[in-house]
Design a protein around this nucleic acid. Sequence first.
DNA 1: ACCCAGACTTAGGAGGTGGAAT
DNA 2: ATTCCACCTCCTAAGTCTGGGT
Length: 640
Amino acid sequence: SLKHGNNDPPRIKDEPDDDGFYASPKEDSKPLKRPREDDDRLLLILQDSKAKKVKSKDKKVPEADKKKKPKKEEEQKWKWWEEERYPEGIKWKFLEHKGPVFAPPYEPLPENVKFYYDGKVMKLSTKAEEVATFFAKMLDHEYTTKEIFRKNFFKDWRKEMTSEEKSTITSLSKCDFTHMSQYFKAQSEARKQMSKEEKQKIKEENERLLKEYGYCVMDNHKERIANFKIEPPGLFRGRGNHPKMGMLKRRIMPEDIIINCSKDSKIPAPPPGHKWKEVRHDNKVTWLVSWTENIQGSIKYIMLNPSSRIKGEKDWQKYETARRLKKCVDKIRNQYREDWKSKEMKVRQRAVALYFIDKLALRAGNEKEEGETADTVGCCSLRVEHIKLHPELDGQEYVVEFDFLGKDSIRYYNKVPVEKRVFKNLQLFMENKQPEDDLFDRLNTSILNKHLQDLMEGLTAKVFRTYNASITLQQQLKELTNPDDNIPAKILSYNRANRAVAILCNHQRAPPKTFEKSMMNLQSKIDAKKEQLADARRELKSAKADAKVRRDEKSKKTVESKKKAVQRIEEQLMKLEVQATDREENKQIALGTSKLNYLDPRISVAWCKKWGIPIEKIYNKTQREKFAWAIDMAEEDYEF
DNA sequence: ACCCAGACTTAGGAGGTGGAAT
DNA sequence: ATTCCACCTCCTAAGTCTGGGT
């Protein structure tokens, strides 16, 4: 994908050198006060009494606490961040859940929906038909025309056919799925046209499912599960140029499922007539359910929601590690600059790679198995073909031009002036190499991370991304927030700071399909508003003139109300213009990923408090749930 | 030193939803 | 009431990193 053009803003963070600029964090990684007290500190409310029994041994709640026994609502806002953490390695003491929800069984097509082979109607066996419907549903997608997709699909489809089908259906191009495809289109159209009641019914059914399977009990607290539904079967579509696209993702059965829960919990029952693959009781891991997927052979998990204690604690910890990096980043930078001069090739490569990771927020770049996944790279796996060296370019010296596909096959394109020593090192690394050779042939992520571990406990390559993202947000907010601005303008500043981070981290998106159109609509709204403003101003003027002549109360009042009207329209216009700017600047940039994964939420919370911005303007409901810990603890003077 | 399985975080897109505009 | 559109939720792929085995 070539979403990213040459004219993009440079993706280099620009951070003040002054280390004393930010006061050192008041709290370090041990901010926890209250002891956890073995599972029975806080009572949890569960609607069903069964679950209450689970914790019937909760008798020793201290008196002091009983008095303040929180009401239901408060209880749902359990402040896990005020409790002590478990010792390293232990993730929970009690875990009970209902197991996964399986994909609905296949419903065969109605008799009148036909599949044609070589122009003739052909009735498929149920299994073959099911797989055929997967293809039929994708017919409008470009990738069903791709050779790899078709080849992989056909190979896997044939495995599901009866021997007769196999001998008849020998060429995919003779298969006609169009009737099936039309049927599905009609179905989805019908779904859209459903009556309110029918839609309501579906909604209620989903809610029932969520209520029953969407939560678990972990250590006396009811916690939301992130993904309690098993992935349905279908055709695999990897991102980018994936060698396995089109392969059949098989249906997961209870017999594939490993259940993880505590011994003394009510063990979830497999569907009637089925058995689990295994039930285990491993409290050193956080997952509730796992299975092995058939495309890559990797393990998939059911885990908790980001709002859960177990995810929140980890997230918090991540930002604390990044803050520790802040304290020693100067030292580390000096160190790698020294290492550029090392006589050991390995050390030089490590130092240059680390410089890229730090300066450009590149990912570590683990090696990948060839032919198993799309060809993408990160820092350590960069190849000679991914960079170009320009001793001079557009008036700048020592420019490195990066052009490679990163995670999710998102293109990274950037021209970066680097220090002479880096440039010379890169020339050295590239000597006598082919384009497809590794740039850093003496380096991998394991070597790099081992080194980082020596520099600071818990330091890995990705900590630099977190650190640089968060420090950039903080610094950009400082720079861009104008105290005199109104709230929408301040929010625009926030979004711009957020955008600076997204650009640094190369978080891109495809421009929304309706972008041009919606931009035009907005522009015409702005034009209309401008006219309205001009009208209002004219009216004000004449009202003023009128008042000057008449000099009575009534006409004075008219002037006042006209004035107000002008002001109101000015404000509306400004809001629209801000919206247009924001949207335009956001065309290809995805803000969500950095907001959710890289920016210490306490920075945003503090900023909101400082400027009186309602937190709802920055974080939606889900995000507020995820960042409840930060919203609760960060004050306006918080420094990352 | 390497390899691999396992666990967990990070990622963009599809499609649904609900409120505003017409 | 209907349409539109922005936002949100869900989905699951694709990374990172660890640790155990050899």
